[in-house]
Design a protein around this nucleic acid. Structure first.
Lengths: 242, 242
DNA sequence: CTTCGTGCGGCACTCGGTGCCGGTTCATTC
DNA sequence: GAATGAACCGGCACCGAGTGCCGCACGAAG
């Protein structure tokens, strides 16, 4: 019910890991996080206590099982960046990866959201998770703006702004119970910060976007007012990139 | 050596609390944070183990003894805001309170900075501290921009930007070992984000600022290019506002 | 002198987390 | 087919953070 998004090549046998996650969330939703001990989880999962800490370095980690993978995806996505594209557009696309991960399992994401809202310890742990994303985005912007005046300051502030905008939209979607279009709000929010931090202001087009491949040429048909970076992403995905 | 800034009215007898902080930092600097147990601290301080947790809810809290007070100061500072002043200017002034707290004890701040850089657990705890500041700033901006389009989004993003800019300058100062003028960098960074987020762009004056009181009239003499909010702060302090 | 509130110390206990060891399984190798 | 070795797993024993509870000492008020 609450399995993480793990692809076969990375982990061939995550059976025990998944069963631990399932058992943990079942108990967390029943009695609450703090009222559930690790012994309760391993007993329900039918495994040894020692095995829990083999798969999760701490009790909090079982609540955020998919963020490590997502952070890797983001790192690779940024590493695959070209010098030609707008750094802010790239960073917004990276933030979109996180939203996509949440949107893949709406019920799981909403359950976790309600847990983290109630338990202070989980909220604190979530901050460290978010911080890793922000650091990754900031490192990327820092290298891209290395020659720029106040490059590191701009990078840190812009990364924080992107993360804040993403989380704003994410929480909006989570509060709605995972109904509604996940990317609608996050696109608006990301475009908002992109427009204020991107040096050039492209008056782009959009709304719904459609792309047709033809060799190396990509034809994009879209409505005016679509976020520019969303158009860029459409072109990139059409060219077969991540 | 490492006492927190506690004023007499709030805590008349923080003798044991201060001795615990001193003992803790002495041991932290000698053997490191994780190599020091709470028993070691209370033994050195000559008090009972139970008393430690009376003054500090967790072992991490002894590293950040002054942030509770600073958060209160910030909350009051924002609550004393008038509808007439620019919200972003006010928020930058609030962030400056944090920098001021760090600058009051440079050696202590630098020691703590080196500790938090090495110990992952302290870094995670620091995030929750920073998050409280960001939430406080965000709440203030949210109410000030309640009628504005995308007010909450703007508030969240702007608060994150202010915090990021402040932390950027703060770390810069801490890395320098607490030498140099503390407010020089933070003023530049805060003015940077204020200029991008404040609706109106005041071409203010400054550099060094001097104010003379004369009844209710405040005469400010300053150089061009001084951050506007710094001028505002000067006027406020001249009018006798915390 | 008594009494009551407060602050402190000293248990005893729970629970998260780690190191270590022994057993099982499975694939490799002769 | 049997021996070998690497992984994986379970079961301790142990450490340290954090909590609840009780008893004691001290000082102020009656």
């Amino acid at each position: 019910m609450a399995a993480a998004a793990t692809n076969p090549p990375t982990s061939p046998k995550p059976a025990m890991r998944d069963s631990l996650i399932a058992a943990a969330f079942q108990l967390f939703l029943e009695r609450g996080y703090e009222q559930t001990t690790v012994d309760d989880i391993v007993t329900l999962a039918g495994v040894g206590r020692r095995s829990f800490f083999r798969y999760f370095p701490s009790k909090e980690d079982v609540v955020f099982p998919d963020h490590d993978q997502c952070l890797d995806d983001m790192t690779r996505f940024l590493a695959a960046s070209a010098d030609s594209d707008d750094p802010m557009v790239r960073v917004c696309g990276a933030a979109r990866l996180v939203m996509r991960m949440y949107a893949e399992n709406p019920t799981f994401s909403v359950q976790r959201y309600r847990l983290t809202r109630e338990v202070a310890g989980l909220r604190a742990y979530e901050l460290s998770v978010v911080w890793r994303y922000e650091k990754t985005l900031g490192d990327y912007l820092r290298t891209r703006w290395a020659d720029r005046r106040d490059g590191t300051l701009r990078a840190n502030v812009a990364a924080a702004a992107v993360v804040a905008a993403h989380n704003h939209a994410l929480r909006h979607w989570l509060r709605s119970g995972g109904e509604g279009e996940p990317f609608e709000e996050v696109d608006r929010a990301l475009e908002f910060v992109r427009a204020t931090w991107s040096p050039d202001a492209p008056g782009a087009a959009a709304g719904d976007t459609a792309a047709e491949e033809d060799g190396d040429v990509v034809v994009v048909i879209t409505k005016r007012s679509t976020p520019m970076w969303r158009v860029v992403r459409e072109v990139e995905s059409s060219l077969g990139e991540g």
